[in-house]
């Protein structure tokens, strides 16, 4: 099984670590909705067919990837960075990140 990393190109599955089901939505950390937490921790769609997954290119660039893979054929139809803002100057940290960088730049 080959996974085409957006940075590194097609690489053998042995370079990647499976981080599990990508369909789950983590509740707000402050949430006290136990059912939502239970569902997040324990319940899985487990489809036979296309499956949204999280993989990390742990033996390469270490990026976390959103992968759509067919669980019947192991065919991979899409690979993308987990964060859609991956590669942006502020690395997705928004104002906080920009502020930190500006501060660093000011110092320099």
């Amino acid at each position: 099984m080959l996974i085409t990393c957006p940075y590194c190109g097609p690489r053998d599955v042995i370079e990647f670590t499976y981080q599990g089901d990508g369909n789950r939505e983590r509740p707000d950390p402050a949430s006290q909705n136990f059912e939502a937490w239970n569902a997040y921790v324990y319940d899985r769609l487990n489809p036979a067919g296309d499956h949204n997954e999280i993989w990390q290119h742990s033996g390469g660039c270490r990026a976390h990837l959103k992968v759509v893979r067919n669980t019947l054929t192991h065919e991979i139809s899409s690979v993308a960075f987990m964060r859609s803002d991956h590669g942006r100057g502020d690395h997705g940290r928004g104002d906080h990140g920009s502020a930190a960088r500006r501060k660093a730049e000011d110092k320099a």
């Binding site: 569902a39 319940d43 899985r44 769609l45 487990n46 489809p47 036979a48």
Partner: peptide
């Protein structure tokens, strides 16, 4: 998972 989905149960504490 496949059989339970036929019964309308979408999620299970199971991965294949």
């Amino acid at each position: 998972g496949r059989v339970m989905q036929l019964a309308g149960i979408e999620t299970m504490p199971i991965e294949s």
